[in-house]
């Protein structure tokens, strides 16, 4: 009890008001964490990206720009394009499926909101490996879908579903879907319901209300959801590795291979640095757009 009394004033000082020292202290753990586990590794990548690969993958510390020259070699361009295509398709499908779902949970569900959100996040609790193997079982030649379709006589020969772009997309959509729905849901929740009523009072039908009131007002959520889906998709290599085939090689696989197989860390680093730079530019663009949107 006495301990608590001693701590209490310190705690209220810390969270009590707008003291600068207090706010800095509160920020310290998170900043230290980010500095150690995000900034430092990225700085290291940056440094290594200017080094050279020595014999058998040793890093030789002689300054070179060759890795960057190789990274923008047109040979690797199709890989980048393919990744962008998979990431944007995943984002688009997640948005198309996620918006109605978020809308439904936000507007039509009363009692079981938390339960539904919990179910949505359930896939994030399972190991990614388990999810991937589950898809292999479902999509395989003698898998769930094929045996079902064969048994009801719809097909004679099993369909080839696995190790195709289709399977990679399914895996990506399944994994990143919650990252799209959660920000959409929170922006729909924040939307003052009075605006919708006002739209209806002023004679706006359901479609007009959706397109001219609800959707524009939830655009920040849409942007956030798209970014949270697109960015990790661009770097994903697991889905292509396990559900994909020879033609689904993505930029994530290329980078992973430099670090694991080819032991060409400098090249892998320069690829990563470039990818991070492109993503940062995208995020900057999104923020500028959002600010513009807010000032409308």
């Amino acid at each position: 009890m006495s301990m608590l009394k001693k701590i209490d004033p310190a705690l209220s000082w810390l969270i009590g008001g707008r003291r600068q020292t207090a706010s800095q202290l509160l920020l310290l753990p998170a900043s230290a964490w980010l500095a150690c586990f995000m900034l430092a590794p990225i700085a290291l990548l940056f440094v290594v990206s200017f080094a050279q690969r020595g014999d058998y993958g040793a890093i030789s510390w002689t300054f070179t720009l060759k890795n960057y020259a190789r990274s923008i070699d047109p040979r690797y361009f199709p890989v980048l394009m393919r990744s962008a295509l998979y990431a944007s398709t995943t984002t688009a499908v997640c948005l198309a499926l996620g918006y109605p779902l978020a809308y439904f949970i936000s507007f039509y569900v009363d009692k079981h909101k938390n339960l539904l959100l919990l179910l949505l996040m359930l896939p994030l609790w399972t190991s990614c490996t388990v999810e991937i193997y589950a898809w292999i079982i479902i999509l395989g030649r003698e898998g769930l879908i094929n045996s079902l379709l064969t048994q009801i006589g719809l097909i004679d020969e099993p369909l080839r579903l696995l190790n195709r772009p289709f399977a990679v997309l399914i895996g990506l959509i399944h994994t990143y879907f919650p990252f799209m729905v959660l920000p959409l849901y929170s922006s729909l929740e924040k939307l003052p319901k009075a605006y919708i009523e006002a739209s209806k009072d002023l004679g706006g039908g359901p479609w007009a209300t959706l397109w001219r009131v609800t959707f524009p007002l939830t655009l920040p959520g849409v942007f956030a959801g798209c970014m949270l889906t697109f960015i990790p998709c661009m770097g994903d290599f697991l889905m292509a590795e396990f559900l994909g085939g020879p033609s689904t090689y993505l930029v994530g696989n290329l980078i992973q291979n430099q670090f694991l197989t080819a032991q060409d860390w400098p090249f892998g680093s320069s690829l990563s640095v470039l990818l991070i730079a492109v993503m940062m530019a995208g995020l900057y663009l999104q923020q500028t757009l959002e600010k513009k949107h807010a000032s409308w």
Binding site: R53, D55, Y56, R75, Y76, P78, V79, P246, Y249, N253, L254, N257, T261, A262, Q263, D264
Partner: peptide
Amino acid sequence: AEALWNRVWQEVKI
């Protein structure tokens, strides 16, 4: 040679 093999294999994969 090992570095060359690595590069060539990478080109096969992409």
